[in-house]
Design a protein around this nucleic acid. Sequence first.
RNA 1: GCCCAGAUGGCGGAAUUGGUAGACGCGUUGGUCUCAAACACCAAUGGGGAUGACCCGUGCCGGUUCGACCCCGGCUCUGGGUACCA
Length: 872
Amino acid sequence: MEYNFKEIEKKWQAEWQRQQTYKVDVDSSREKFYVLDMFPYPSGAGLHVGHPLGYIASDIYSRYKRLCGFNVLHPMGYDAFGLPAEQYAIQTGQHPAVTTENNINRYRSQMDKIGFSYDWSREVRTCEPEYYKWTQWAFLEMFGHYYNNKLNRADKIENLIAHFEKQGTEGLDVACTEQMTFSAEEWNAMSEKEQQTVLHNYRLAFRADTMVNWCPKLGTVLVNDEVKDGLSVRGGFPVVQKQMKQWLLRVTAYAQRLLDGLDSLEWSDSLKEIQRNWIGRSTGAQMFFDVAGSDRKLEIFTTRPDTIFGVTFMVIAPEHEWVMDLTTEENKQAVEEYLEMTKKRSERERIAETKRVSGVFTGSYCVNPFTEEQIPIYVSDYVLAGYGTGAIMAVPAHDSRDYAFAKHFNIPIIPVVEGGDISVESYDAKAGKMINSGLLTGLDVKEAIPLMFDEVEKRGLGKKQVNYRLRDAIFSRQRYWGEPFPIYYKNDVAYPVSEDKLPIILPEIKNFGPTEQGEPPLARVEDWGTEEGYPFELSTMPGFAGSSAYYLRYMDPHNDTALVGKKENEYWRNVDLYVGGIEHATGHLIYSRFWNKFLYDLGCVCESEPFKKLVNQGMIQGRSNFVYRVVGTNKYVSLGLKDQYETQEIHVDVNIVKNDVLDLDAFRKWSPDYADAEFILEDGKYICGWAIEKMSKSMYNVVNPDYIVDNYGADTLRMYEMFLGPLEQSKPWDTNGIDGVHKFLRRFWYRFYDRQGNWNVSDEQPTAAELKTLHKTIKKVREDIENFSFNTSVSAFMICLNELGDCNKRAILEPLAVLLAPFVPHITEELWHQLGNESSICDAAYPECNPAYLVESSFEYPVSVNGKMRFK
RNA sequence: GCCCAGAUGGCGGAAUUGGUAGACGCGUUGGUCUCAAACACCAAUGGGGAUGACCCGUGCCGGUUCGACCCCGGCUCUGGGUACCA
């Protein structure tokens, strides 16, 4: 029998489906293991060879864990709401539901060909009402809760209302948008509408006026991740800053817990670092500066209270609410002009002018509480309204931004820490001896900072404070293709739809663009509202809404009374291994953790972190090929000779190039432009140039997995993707190397069959050398899988086969097949059955776990050489 | 600017974490088979050297050590994250 991968793979994929080999259920007699891939957004382009990399790695790990005896949950689904389908709909009128369905089918057929062990009975799609019912439900719960800092968890909003009724804001320690103070009497005297407005200051899902990235062309709000260099990531349209009423999630309430939780996770240090920076905790002092000639006290935040003797001016953000109050009559015009200018400046311009210093003097002064000196107050957009208090004390000698500002406006620069040369630049380091600083003079910076915290509190000037860079997540999008909000409006007040009315189903529409009035597409739906006629919210939820709790839904995907059943959640708990791209570090991976912690507070889930271990697979880059056209002709010169001509580099389809040698006929046929091409060859061949670039259509370097599966088989594809290099590293795809892996599988096959195709497995006893090779390989492969070092385990298999020579003994080949099964499930399943086994190789025991395969006496343990354990 | 990761043959990458650098695969060269080609198989393959015991080699400079791709100090370059966060 020949190694006919096409037949073998087709046969077993059908068989696995028929027997439901990969279906799993709660089984309290076995230990669980949950392996999850980041589910894909099904784009119209289909999968290229880079996409399945992480899926293959997690599939190998799942199959391995199953062989080791675990009950493995390994599901897959689709993140199906999103902008591309909507953009396509606006352009073509094709309903996003239709294109999404088509794309999903395409993805599914591509994935099926690779032989994954997913339990498809658990598939979820975020755009289906049965699924987004629970996205809406979670939102309602957030709407119905606030964050209680004393309990350090979310609490029912009813409890907050009760507190207001009894004692107003007295004794409250809760997360809020802004500090409010009112008494019980004041609260009780408020109208329903006023009370509801106040509550938005505390709810975990709330409405507020915020500066947002508004993209006029897309007609929607974008989060920072969706904007790059002032342009939208999708489409590349200009984005401007705009004040709008938006729904937000109070992620900041969980900042400290999100930070603390990182310590317990098995994530890479770099990923944890990205999240820490994103959360951006900093400890400093809140301080009040008296405004000269007024009873106002300007509140600022600083991490360097030790430099107070070097303060020579104050700066407030253009959006600071006191700007006009602090501006004197003679400076009024200049300040107003400045405010007008900053308002007009878009995000894009700000970035372009990032080094340009601008600002204006208000005419007012603060009093330095330590020196009693008067210091001028400026307005400048280098101070952000959204961080700290929107006002700073400026120390030009020790802050580079303050330094640039002081130089520009000729403000004095007083050094208070020894070490730098302030005639050249500021000295920002937190190290050195204090000078010119009254009571601090002579101390080290490290001593001065804590001393000042005490001093500030003692003198009643302010207190120690922790700030976070993390912002609340903007949660509404002015789009159609997303989850509708379970919110209706009555008398302009937002009310939750009752839970038993969920899901609020996204209505069908024909025109997907914004209305002429700039309203979201849902404004086109005539009866979009409650039965009583109250209008629903017109926005829909953003992409991260549906992806924040999908890992929980997989545990119990068809439950229609809860997001996840208690029994299911307590068995599967959380994700043991999560595999996906690093690009979600500050988006999905923050929001999911937040969402999970909220559900944890509600008692709906039993683990406070969703993803225990996380592995980021690297990106697979494209390897492009070039031909060199002699300028002004239709002649193409081979790489080695191109320096003799003036040439132009042109991308050529990698599929008509093999080992950098161009297929001349295929090139002539590739495009009419090249039909009459002439070539200047070297050694009778046309050698192409190459470069590593992003895999994309425009570079003609896209390789489709279907093509590889058709020509080499799924097993070869799986093994080769792993062989390319370390999983977490970015690396180029190069189809040329694939023969080596394919050859390995053929050689493995022909241990079982001879060249004439006759079954040729012997029952002879293996030699000691053969057993040593086998067990060395078992040990190595197992260690490599546990360390996600799949490339070296593939090498180990190849070495093993080389060492075994032409050994065809069952006692060696059978355990080797089990060892290989996670990597190449089809070929091993076939051989496993040829060996006479009835059940699937998926249910075999991993060699090391199976005593039958361990011949103790013949197994040579590693010996100590120079104090190291090694095999002889 | 700041933070993180990395740099090893013609190419992708190994090196049991301080102990024979270049495993494994690709490519290349030579050979066997064939009328021929493809497939397959065998051999060689870091550089230099009269192709022999020898010398030089892990981005660059220095250090620690009996011994350094690995540890320490200083640079250079590449990739990624972040950007007025006070």
